[in-house]
Design a protein around this nucleic acid. Structure first.
Lengths: 193, 193
DNA sequence: CAATGTAGGCTAATGTAATTAGCGTAATGG
DNA sequence: CCATTACGCTAATTACATTAGCCTACATTG
């Protein structure tokens, strides 16, 4: 039997492609093995389990998202940075739905590598918010609100949750515009101790 | 064999309980049958398939959510209605995570019953927005932004996505406050044709 | 170059879950 | 009371994840 030249990286990359094509929830080892031209059990020489593979894919996808966001926001500030990052976020989700879904998986508490990848995403978010002069609890609240808004939008959009006949791009643009305005007034909101 | 007194409704209700307890994604016919004290194949006398059951559960849960939101918002208007509905939304998700996840499933295009349930939710949202004088594309954009923000927040929160040591309730309250302010200025945003 | 050890493929077997086929009994309506 | 239907069962099939254990390509080393 000729060697197939697999590795953990190759398997994860193939898993990403299949997750993008078939959906994160329908990712199966059978499909991955098939598309790599090997039998299913062979994968276990490179992964520990399906869940382990999902975690590896989550880490890889989260890093990819962080780099994408950072690349979009670099050299920009304020509303400019916000719009660039938000558009990059949605584009990533639309272009790579499986990988995007993987980024939503929360890191296990003791998983330093995964945490670091998730932190890298949050660093970009906080960098964008710093352009609005936000820090401390203000920034945490704003970061949560921003991530929630963007994630909620793309999750609903990708899930077919927008039934009305209006282009999602328009609504998204409007959302970001409104968020920008909200950030300008953010620090003046009641700061409950 | 004594009859177990099953029905589609009973099976769906049990599925809801199990989805809440184990998670929407880990809902299995085996668990449902077990908890009802019957063998797995017996369920097929009342459901068409696992996916059919998930759809039935989605309809039931979506109706429940619509009623919950309507009950919370009735008799209120403006910021009051917004806060009441938003809090009811998050409470529902936290109290019934499985049912909440079911409500996110988009109706199939030809599924009138499911569509009607989803419309009932949107009617409450539009009713809240009408208190801000919004209609037409303005209202559609605002409705999408609102649903995205709320869904994104509870999805991330329930998924353990908030790592920072700050109470999610605070961040949520802040989000709603900011959204209220955004709605006041909403119609003045650029209305791109 | 030959011996050898390991890495990386394989087949076979197990367990869980969804689904279908077909059997037998409880409930119900003439 | 009998016939029909409703409803639960067992048995079998399929798909998938997982483990055990085999067998060979290939790199290392004498």
């Amino acid at each position: 039997m000729a060697r197939a030249g697999l590795s953990r990286e190759v398997v994860v990359a193939q898993a990403a492609a299949i997750a993008d094509a078939m959906g994160w929830d329908r990712l199966t080892l059978a499909a991955i093995a098939d598309s790599l031209g090997v039998k299913l059990p062979s994968l276990y020489k490179h992964i520990t389990s399906l869940d382990g593979l999902r975690r590896d894919l989550a880490v890889a996808a989260t890093r990819e998202l962080a780099e994408t966001l950072a690349a979009a926001a670099v050299g920009r500030a304020g509303p400019d940075a916000l719009a660039a990052a938000a558009n990059a976020y949605r584009s990533f989700a639309v272009a790579h739905p499986g990988r995007y879904a993987a980024t939503v998986r929360a890191p296990a508490p003791e998983d330093a590598e995964h945490r670091e990848a998730a932190d890298a995403v949050m660093r970009v978010v906080f960098a964008v918010l710093s352009g609005y002069g936000l820090a401390g609890d203000d920034a945490v609240d704003a970061a949560r609100a921003l991530r929630a808004s963007l994630h909620g939008f793309v999750a609903l959009e990708c899930g077919g949750g927008f039934a009305m006949p209006r282009a999602p791009e328009r609504s998204y643009h409007r959302l970001i515009e409104a968020f920008d305005q909200a950030l300008l007034r953010w620090p003046s909101s009641s700061e409950g101790g």
